[in-house]
Design a protein around this nucleic acid. Structure first.
Lengths: 133, 133
DNA sequence: TAGCGTTATCCTCAATAAAAGATAGCAAAA
DNA sequence: TTTTGCTATCTTTTATTGAGGATAACGCTA
């Protein structure tokens, strides 16, 4: 699988604002627990793909992400949430499956609301022209 | 000089918010121009040190940063601003010096206002409890 | 009971920006 | 005219962590 994004691209900036002379205010938001990243743009997209595709493996493939990496992210989110955001079974005719729990659905919803509000807040901000030196 | 921070630590998160069950909302803000980082937390601290110490070299030393790196940041900020934020001369009894221009002072002020407003905005946000799955 | 495609886990690799290293050039002041 | 410690620039290194590789375990279904 071809690399779809640079290895350390932590995902899109979560908002931007047009400004004076082409200067843009950029920002990112994420949720942490115990100093560890709990939810971020990329993780939430992964959750959505899991919901839509029914497995971690398929979700990872659709994002050009290694399954092992996606699994690590899911395990971390479940652990930090203190409950499962993603339910999983393995074995069975099709190997296994994964799905979002109500908590997982709620987490996605909350995150996008937060991101949208942030985007709106950013748009209320503008950069002032600097004085000529 | 001992390393004072990890190489890719892009600086402190610019705000946080206490939340449910230890979940914190974290965020960072920065300014871009033409897709390049123009001002960020670390760059603004560097500007302040230059103002206080009168040279890029001293400012870099005080931050545990290589002079060459500090110089690159300063050159980038001046270039992207379209004018000097940091004035410089070289040669002379003490080798040279650097200082903030009015535009540089204004840039620092604007950035900290933005950061403070962002911090306040973050504090108005809270994470909801997730439903038990 | 064989096949299948997952989940579960290990260990390793690598892209990239930050950071450091090295050295030449400069000019005011002693 | 020498000293000084900056600026200016080049090249090289390193740390981070996303990303990938490989394989065992699993259990439903045909």
């Amino acid at each position: 699988m071809k690399r779809l994004k640079a290895p350390h691209d932590r995902g899109s900036a979560l908002g931007e604002s047009p400004g004076v002379a082409g200067v843009q205010i950029k920002g990112r938001l994420w949720l942490e627990k115990d100093g560890e990243t709990f939810l971020s743009w990329g993780r939430v997209v992964l959750l959505e793909r899991i919901r839509d595709q029914g497995s971690i493996a398929a979700a990872a493939r659709s994002m050009g992400m290694a399954y092992s990496h996606a699994w690590t992210l899911v395990a971390g989110m479940n652990r930090l949430a203190g409950q499962e955001l993603v339910g999983r079974t393995f074995g069975g005719r099709h190997g296994g499956k994964a799905w979002l729990t109500p908590a997982g659905e709620a987490a996605i919803g909350q995150f996008w609301v937060l991101v949208e509000d942030f985007r709106k807040w950013l748009q209320t901000r503008k950069v002032e022209e600097l004085p000529k030196s």
